[in-house]
Amino acid sequence: MDPAKTEQPEPTVCHVVAMPYPGRSHINAMMNLCKLMASKTADILIGFVVTEEWLGFISSEPKPPAKIRFATVPNCIPSEVSRGKDFPGFMNAVNTKMEVHFEELLDRLQQPVKAIVADTHLVDYIPVYPIGPAIPYLELEEKNASIANSINGVNYLQWLDSQPPCSVLYISMGSFLSVSNAQMDEIIGVIRDSGVRSLWVSRGETGWSNDCSGDMSLVVPWCNQLKVLCHSSIGGFWTHCGWNSTLEAVFAGVPMLTYPIFWDQVPISKHIVEDWKIGWKVKKDVGVLTRREISELVKRFVDKKSDEMNAMRQRAKELQKSSRRAIAKGGSSDANLDAFIRNISEDHGH
């Protein structure tokens, strides 16, 4: 049989380019969205654009589906390592220096681009599609992930398995800005002395890991946050109120202690505490919370017999149901994503 006669023409592929803002939480959210898009249809190819520096950062992470391919622009902006020292300057560089390199990349692509999915933090005078939340819930279905759950020889999910239900306070201050050394000293002291079980995520630049580790606490440089938040032993989340972290906590149905540090984290904290009523604020507008103040707040927060906390946990579970309805088949988030893919696929190639 002539092989040439049996070959099938390759299907027409809808080519999409994804451009996240060059920050950890934004890259994570965009990658989650791209994975969801790739899971919806076989006839899609996604070019995921990052700086050369960021490609180096994420090259050791699990590879995305084959339909998602990385592309890079030069390191024309300040390094991620130092961007916190001059954040306004970093943002200005992103909005003034990346555009020309991104356009050059588009010109080099052989396959026509049907759509550009851009982060709203980038200057982008084109229509915006309401898609989200981009929660990495597909990862919850992954099997045989025990190696990925081990850090420095310690499997943090197994450690959580050994803890009583709703007993562990998960603490993460985000991937960018952090609290002052004085306030961190107070937080460390009260958690260590309070008897509250805790799982901490430390980015590695602080020297307090040994002060917090012990039978009641575990400190790791990284974890699969959604898996942790959905674990039955987690009773609360001390968070900086980044949007990704907030949505993941809502998805998991976990109450929050809010510690906003900067920018949109302040109004997000308000949503959690005042609007949704699924958390308490653990930060003064001015000054440093004392060890006694934090201790009293944390102990009240993990009290399983508290009517106030039980009511808060119930509200968190109700919000969780709404979140999961949105991503379920036919839910608002699922329908919006289907509509977007259908819109860009209907006439691609014309």
Results as ranks from 00 to 15, higher is better:
336 N>R: 04
336 N>W: 00
323 S>G: 01
292 R>N: 13
277 K>G: 13
326 A>N: 11
282 V>E: 04
301 F>E: 11
302 V>W: 05
280 W>N: 03
301 F>L: 14
282 V>H: 00
275 D>V: 07
292 R>S: 15
317 K>E: 02
328 A>T: 13
281 K>Q: 14
322 S>V: 10
319 L>M: 03
312 M>F: 01
285 D>F: 10
314 Q>Y: 12
291 R>E: 12
322 S>D: 11
318 E>Q: 02
283 K>P: 08
328 A>R: 12
320 Q>T: 04
294 I>H: 15
309 M>H: 01
326 A>H: 06
320 Q>E: 09
275 D>Y: 06
278 I>Y: 06
315 R>W: 03
336 N>F: 01
294 I>W: 10
317 K>C: 08
302 V>L: 13
285 D>H: 07
317 K>T: 09
307 D>T: 06
289 L>Y: 13
294 I>D: 05
335 A>F: 00
330 G>E: 07
297 L>S: 14
332 S>I: 14
325 R>N: 05
299 K>P: 05
275 D>N: 11
287 G>T: 08
290 T>K: 15
302 V>A: 05
284 K>I: 01
312 M>D: 02
314 Q>V: 11
308 E>P: 01
329 K>F: 04
300 R>N: 13
290 T>V: 10
303 D>S: 02
303 D>L: 13
294 I>G: 02
290 T>S: 15
301 F>D: 05
292 R>L: 04
333 S>Y: 08
280 W>T: 01
285 D>I: 05
321 K>A: 09
325 R>P: 00
295 S>C: 12
283 K>C: 09
327 I>R: 11
319 L>T: 04
277 K>V: 11
277 K>S: 13
295 S>T: 15
327 I>V: 15
291 R>L: 10
275 D>W: 07
326 A>P: 03
314 Q>M: 08
284 K>R: 13
276 W>A: 09
318 E>R: 04
288 V>E: 15
312 M>G: 03
330 G>C: 01
295 S>L: 09
315 R>A: 11
319 L>Q: 06
308 E>G: 02
276 W>H: 06
318 E>S: 03
292 R>V: 15
294 I>S: 07
